[in-house]
């Protein structure tokens, strides 16, 4: 792997880490989600410092370029994360609908009682 790619990975990983740390401080990120991104950016930092890990596995799996292996792995992890987020989104949509309905029913009840 070229030095430029390593440097690029390293800076990218460090920036990701900084981004989520700032968001936690600003109280805009829930910790359960921050943990995934910590892992992810830590992993990237480690790979950028020790690229031989990638070289070893790309030889083992017969992948021509270590960078290709990195892309495949990253895309795979992100697809899984996206799917998990979609599951979460579905559950949130359902909960939001239930809450709005409950709220409307309560208001209707209260309105009828007031009259």
């Amino acid at each position: 792997m070229t030095l430029a790619l390593r440097l690029f990975l390293f800076i990218g990983a460090v920036l990701t880490l900084l981004l989520f740390l700032v968001q936690i401080r600003k109280k805009r990120l829930k910790i359960q989600y921050a943990i995934f991104w910590t892992f992810f950016s830590f992993f990237l930092v480690i790979l950028s410092i020790f690229p031989t890990i990638l070289v070893f596995f790309s030889k083992l799996l017969g992948v021509q370029s270590p960078a290709n292996l990195l892309f495949v792995l990253t895309i795979f992890v992100l697809v899984l994360k996206l799917f998990q987020d979609t599951l979460k989104l579905s559950s949130l949509e359902h909960k939001l609908m239930t809450l709005a309905q409950e709220f409307a029913l309560l208001k209707y009840d209260k309105h009828n009682r007031d009259e």
Binding site: I24, R25, K27, I31, A34, I35, T38
Partner: peptide, 8 residues
């Protein structure tokens, strides 16, 4: 270990 210490 990693997250709580960065909270404000």
């Amino acid at each position: 270990l990693l997250v709580q210490r960065f909270r404000g």
